[in-house]
């Protein structure tokens, strides 16, 4: 029974994703087409980028709700600079730096002010959404030059640059988490903060870095999103964080911290994308998609809870 739970938790997501892949391949004409696959990859690029680092932050023991607000606000900062200077590199730097600063604020609230990360980032969400309205003067923003559009939409070897950037970021995040000292410290901090501290890990710094990386990645995702849309607009839209969080949780990363893997989050992103794509191709009412997605999250969290009971 326990080995079944462990297996389900480690490889379950891979098995169901492959099953879904086969099912959709067999039951629809359009699913396995090159165009459909390219589209899925392109559409998921933003979620993939942010979900990789969300996985890392959750493994380190923290939630970050503000990712949705960072995703909305940072492209506005980037476009403000682009409009003022006409320079895309400067705009990119400004957008990413704004994300890093926002992550720094989250990290400060959690490590120095000792606020629970869920509450802290809920609070900063409102601040960042507000910053978005201020920067954009409450209106939709568009790039001045043609170059902005090329950021995400240039085709390289059949795939868009957004897809390539997402693949590179995911691989780098995976290496950082599994092959470096920092990655080990992330797991240790989430698994037992005090034990990690006594073993010489600077746990505050580790958590701070995970927040900065996460917000930076959300900024990158936001900027790529604005390039695809050729515009950005201020809002109070939390939907991005829900997509990111859903992927991490369905991927089996423990919400208690200390365990999880980026490859599973990535698999979960595709599982959810296939699910949605399948509903479209079969022309089923998208309301069913919500019901099924909610059910899938519940299953994933139940498996997590079952394995927590074992260790508790």
């Amino acid at each position: 029974m326990q080995t079944a739970i462990t297996f389900a938790r480690t490889y379950g997501i891979l098995v169901v994703t492959l099953l879904l892949f086969c099912l959709l391949t067999l039951t629809t004409d359009g699913f396995l087409s090159e165009r459909n696959m390219r589209n899925i990859l392109d559409q998921q690029s933003g979620v993939l980028i942010a979900a990789s680092f969300m996985t890392m932050a959750i493994i380190a023991g923290n939630f970050d709700i503000s990712v949705g607000a960072v995703y909305v606000a940072t492209p506005l900062v980037a476009l403000l600079v682009e409009n003022a200077t006409g320079s895309i590199p400067l705009a990119l730097v400004a957008g990413l730096a704004a994300g890093a600063v926002m992550g720094g604020i989250n990290g400060f609230a959690v490590t120095r002010l000792k606020v629970n990360s869920f509450i802290a980032t809920l609070a900063t969400s409102f601040m960042f959404f507000g910053a978005g309205y201020l920067v954009s003067d409450r209106s939709i923003m568009r790039p001045e030059g043609e170059g902005w559009r090329a950021l995400a939409r240039t085709r390289v070897f059949e795939l868009t640059t957004a897809t390539w950037i997402a693949l590179i970021v995911v691989i780098l995040a995976g290496i950082l988490l599994t092959r470096t000292r920092f990655g080990r410290n992330v797991y240790a901090t989430g698994a037992n903060r005090e034990a990690a501290r006594l073993a010489g890990v600077n746990v505050d710094r580790v958590q701070m870095i995970t927040f900065v990386l996460l917000a930076g990645s959300a900024a990158l995702a936001g900027i790529l999103g604005s390039s695809r849309a050729i515009s950005a607009q201020p809002s109070d839209d939390f939907s991005f964080i829900f997509a990111v969080l859903t992927a991490v949780i369905v991927g089996g990363t423990s919400i208690a911290g200390g365990s999880g893997a980026i490859w599973r989050t990535v698999t979960a992103v595709f599982f959810l994308a296939f699910l949605s794509n399948g509903f479209n191709l079969h022309q089923i009412d998208p309301i069913w998609q919500r019901l099924i997605e909610g059910f899938v999250i519940l299953v994933a969290v139940s498996i997590d809870a079952a394995s927590q009971r074992r260790s508790g």
Partner: peptide
């Protein structure tokens, strides 16, 4: 339990944790 071990993590990670600097090179661990 409280201050020493990361109970859910593998044995080797528990043993190696304070020594990762010595075990890391330019290409990571």
């Amino acid at each position: 339990r409280d201050d020493g071990l990361m109970m859910g993590r593998p044995i080797f990670e528990n043993v190696a944790l304070p020594h990762l600097r010595q075990l890391s090179g330019a290409l990571g661990l």
